[in-house]
């Protein structure tokens, strides 16, 4: 069972890159060429095909960090630490992308780059929490198991803080466009919906691939530090 799972995980290096390539190309062509021009918002609306999937991808990445952090604390297994760090890195990257595309869209549509709307504020706070997580992990030794556990504590608290953040900022007026595709009857025209779904496929597979890459990098980094420490010890002896 574990063996089968391991072999399936190995396949990610073979399977993910072509999927990412094709889906991203399809999304770009779809968003720029195929999708119709929005009547009221104009060309800037095309940002939605990146913005919405990136937001979902951010939550997915932070959820992976949360689960991996729990495993670090619970199973005391350092193999989960690179996964937690890797997906936090990718999550912060896409969270920044969400904030950036939102600001570019907000200027022509709302008249301002930024507003203290509940959803925007929550996203910003998430960005700050996970930046702090990365900072805490970056200033400590990557081999240090105790530091990994402390960072995992932040990974857990940060995710569990989300409902409270949402509860506290929802009291403010909400400007953000309400979700229109997760309702039972999508209000989006078919062509746009197809491009958006392509966007989801592209961004989510890209995020999975990036998380795999950065977790693998972190893992190798950890191994290298371990080998170095071993060499130092041998030379010292």
């Amino acid at each position: 069972m574990t063996n089968l799972l391991g072999r399936m995980l190995e396949l990610r290096w073979v399977v993910l890159p072509p999927i990412v390539g094709v889906a991203m190309m399809a999304m770009i062509i779809g968003a720029l060429v195929a999708a119709p021009r929005e009547i009221i918002e104009g060309e800037v609306q095309r940002l939605m095909y990146i913005h919405v999937p990136s937001a979902i991808a951010t939550y997915m990445a932070f959820f992976i960090t949360f689960v991996a952090s729990i495993m670090v604390l619970w199973k005391r297994d350092m193999r989960w630490d690179p996964i937690a760090r890797g997906s936090a890195q990718v999550g912060v990257l896409f969270c920044g992308l969400v904030l950036l595309t939102g600001a570019i869209w907000g200027k022509p549509i709302w008249g301002v780059f930024w507003t203290w709307d509940a959803r925007l504020t929550t996203t910003l706070i998430l960005f700050l929490i996970y930046t702090a997580y990365l900072l805490a992990r970056a200033v400590s030794d990557s081999m240090d198991e105790q530091a990994a556990r402390y960072a995992a504590v932040i990974g857990v608290i940060g995710f569990l803080d989300v409902p409270l953040i949402q509860m506290s900022v929802r009291w403010w007026r909400t400007l953000h466009p309400q979700p229109i595709i997760f309702t039972s009857k999508p209000a989006l025209p078919d062509e746009m919906l197809i491009v958006l779904l392509l966007g989801f496929a592209g961004i989510l597979s890209l995020v999975l691939w990036l998380i795999s890459l950065s977790a693998e990098t972190e893992r190798m980094h950890q191994r290298l530090a371990g080998l170095r420490a071993g060499v130092d010890r041998r030379e010292g002896a």
């Binding site: 706070i125 200033v139 530091a147 402390y150 504590v153 953040i165």
Partner: peptide, 29 residues
Amino acid sequence: LLSIMGSRVRSRAALLPVLSMPLLIPLLI
């Protein structure tokens, strides 16, 4: 809880506010 991180890492003076403030925003509001 977060201050025990300080016993492990360098530059703890700057780290603790950066770590704890975002988590405390609901409380502040």
